[in-house]
């Protein structure tokens, strides 16, 4: 269990069940004028072995930057991790050498990106692209790797895989391409899979196919998954724990049923009530969250949701501590955004 209040003290009680522990991660980008903006501003969460953790938030909240920080794929030279720890299997990836990171990426951590066309090289055959990581990480020779590629494609449900390995990405549909990307990410049987909006570019019918595929493979291989999405419906159906991000911070973190049953932070409540579902009466007014996320340059040091609500006072100035409001349910305890119990647990 990671326990920290605000940024000052971090108490760690080592937990062997956690594959990944992210502590107080700060990732910033340098703008052209030399200013730094903190896209991820001190976040902590952990991924237990074999579980799926969902990171949800609106565009620009820092969820993709978080993922890229974990595997150190931040755009250089602008992006930097300024502070924090990324403990993966007891090793701090922040201080790992670049050779070590090469081995981790694709080997122990697999990544699926949002847009499959961007993740695949249009000039190489599918088979070659899958073989690449097998040759690199598992030391196979070309022929072996190609044979393994066929069985991987079969595993992700691509018909006629022997033919497909000789095709180019443009010859496949969006769904098939995403399956190829999944096959590449899983080629080396990673311990952790990071799926960054894996289905956003796909249709609903295909979305459910892909998510179920990831779930099945995860069960089979016993890996952990970080599923990044903006869709609360996807989170509800496929995650064990949820991390809600807003404006570079984690505002709430809880097991999935707990979060949907009793959301504590005003932002989480707002998000959950803003989506129309099939049960919402037709043409009824939807609840909205007024205003919009402030520009990253104008973020206040305190509560950024108060900033959106145009509230004034101390909450904007000082960041609230991150507290465990009930068992395993953590929330950024801004007194204006959360109904705090009289005696806050310590």
């Amino acid at each position: 269990m990671v326990f920290h209040s605000n940024r000052e003290e971090i108490v760690v009680s080592e937990n062997k069940d956690n594959l990944l522990e992210v502590k107080n991660l700060v990732t910033a980008f340098r703008l052209e004028n030399g200013d730094w903006v903190r896209a991820v501003d001190g976040i902590s969460f952990h991924v237990p072995k074999g579980k799926t953790v969902g990171i949800v938030g609106e565009s620009g909240c820092g969820k993709s930057v978080t993922a890229m920080s974990l595997v150190q794929l931040l755009p250089k030279p602008m992006g930097h991790i300024l502070d924090g720890e990324v403990m993966f299997k007891g090793e701090d990836l922040r201080s790992a050498s670049s050779e070590r990171m090469h081995a981790v990426r694709g080997g122990e951590i697999g990544v699926i990106f949002q847009e499959p066309m961007m993740a695949l090289n249009p000039c190489h055959r599918i088979g070659k692209q899958i073989s690449e990581s097998l040759i690199l990480h598992r030391g196979m020779d070309k022929r072996e790797a190609l044979r393994e590629s066929v069985s991987l494609l079969e595993k992700v449900g691509i018909p006629a895989p022997e033919r497909r390995i000789m095709e180019y990405p443009h010859q496949l549909s969006g769904c098939m391409r995403q399956r190829v990307v999944i096959a590449i990410a899983l080629a080396c049987k990673p311990d952790l899979l990071i799926a960054d909006e894996p289905t956003t570019a796909l249709d609903v019918t295909v979305q459910s196919q892909i998510l179920e595929l990831i779930e099945d493979l995860q069960e089979e291989m016993g890996m952990s998954t970080i599923l990044i999405t903006h869709d609360l419906g996807v989170i509800a159906g496929h995650c064990d724990e949820v991390v809600v991000m807003y404006a570079g911070r984690v505002v709430e973190r809880a097991p999935v049923t707990e979060l949907y049953a009793s959301p504590q932070h005003a932002y989480t409540k707002g998000l959950l009530s803003a989506i129309p579902t099939l049960a919402t009466p037709r043409k009824a007014k939807l609840k909205t969250i007024e205003g919009q996320v402030a520009s990253i340059k104008d973020f206040v040091p305190g509560c950024r949701f108060c900033q959106r609500m145009e509230r004034t006072g101390d909450t904007l100035v000082k960041r609230a501590p991150f507290i465990e409001i009930s068992k395993n349910h953590w929330v950024e305890a801004c007194p204006k955004c959360v109904d705090l119990p009289k005696q806050a647990p310590t």
Partner: peptide, 24 residues
């Protein structure tokens, strides 16, 4: 029917019967 069953429901308690839609 397949389209409707594929809508992700934002409630982890709801288990809806899924109509599997293979192919493209």
């Amino acid at each position: 029917k397949a389209l409707i069953s594929a809508i992700p429901e934002p409630d982890p308690q709801v288990e809806r019967p899924r109509v599997h839609l293979e192919g493209e």
